[in-house]
Design a protein around this nucleic acid. Structure first.
Lengths: 172, 172
DNA sequence: ACACAAATGTTATATTATAACAATTATAAA
DNA sequence: TTTATAATTGTTATAATATAACATTTGTGT
């Protein structure tokens, strides 16, 4: 088990997520550490390509497209091609380490990957700065399930993406 | 104002939406009538292409892709091309007559287009039969807005798509 | 009939994603 | 340690979705 700095980091609540000038290096390190732990625990192989793609995705809090990732990866691995990226994305999605933002055909790191099950996130996405924050709204999830259940529908997975202005971008 | 049969049709509540053998012709007629009314009221031009694309979208309750639409339209208009479809889709989206299902890159008719504002729907999509039903869950919407608001985030639009099994497809 | 704006036609291309098969690398059984 | 096997990556090609740009036609109001 990798010792992680994450344990020392106090997680702030309530909008701190939107701060445009946090120490983002910590986000990256934490994400990579968590990923390593999770994969180790599952016997899943976080190869160097996969690790690097995850790192690139975590290079910001903005969803990033497959071909943007490819552009960067190509500078390091001349033979990187679309399948290189898409395979890595597939793996990371399966492991619950990233989410796909359907409304943007883009990918974003999961800040809280669940060791037991991979969840689908709920996101607030700023139309101005592009940053996206994942919500953990069990209430909404429950309400949605109930609502579906009223029609006899059983939800297996869901996509919730809200676009708008983050607190920092409202000052205009 | 077009007289519509819709007014005679009693709308059933609670799962009737999933019935695989309703008289779908009524759905189509209603949708086209509503569209005509709405566009007339707005001075928007529901041209024959646009009308036909809307009709094709309403040919089922399954989200349909742009190129599937194009395939059909081509049989009627030899010179139909991708822009033909995408322009029609753009118009219909603007008028709130259809919704885009982000998780499928596909389009579906809006059963309840709002004369005043175009809303983004919330959908239950059956992974078996492919049918999708639009929810009107102001509660969920409110909860989502509140939850965003707690972070200082203002939602402008949202995507909610839940995949699972509809009542009819659960019997297996 | 004319002028203008809106809609459509047409060609080309951008963007996102997957198929198919070959080569390589890791793993663990013999 | 070698070898068999499965997993990963390389490579080429192509599918699927979407838009750009400019020409032409059609509709609308004057």
């Amino acid at each position: 088990m990798v010792q992680r700095k994450a344990k020392q980091k106090t997680k702030q609540k309530g909008g701190a997520e939107w701060s445009h000038n946090h120490d983002h290096r910590l986000c990256i390190v934490d994400a990579l550490d968590r990923a390593a732990d999770l994969c180790a625990g599952r016997g899943a192989r976080l190869t160097s390509i996969r690790r690097r793609v995850l790192e690139l995705i975590w290079s910001s809090h903005r969803p990033i497209g497959a071909y943007s990732l490819l552009e960067v990866l190509k500078q390091e691995r001349a033979n990187a091609a679309p399948p290189t990226i898409y395979r890595a994305l597939e793996f990371l999605l399966e492991q619950g380490l990233i989410h796909r933002i359907e409304s943007q055909n883009a990918y974003i790191g999961c800040p809280n990957p669940d060791p037991d099950q991979q969840h689908k996130g709920m996101f607030l996405i700023c139309t101005d700065c592009g940053n996206a924050v994942e919500l953990e709204e069990t209430k909404i999830d429950r309400l949605l399930r109930n609502s579906a259940s009223n029609q006899g529908f059983v939800i297996e997975s869901r996509t919730v993406e809200a676009a708008g202005l983050c607190p920092e971008c409202q000052v205009s």
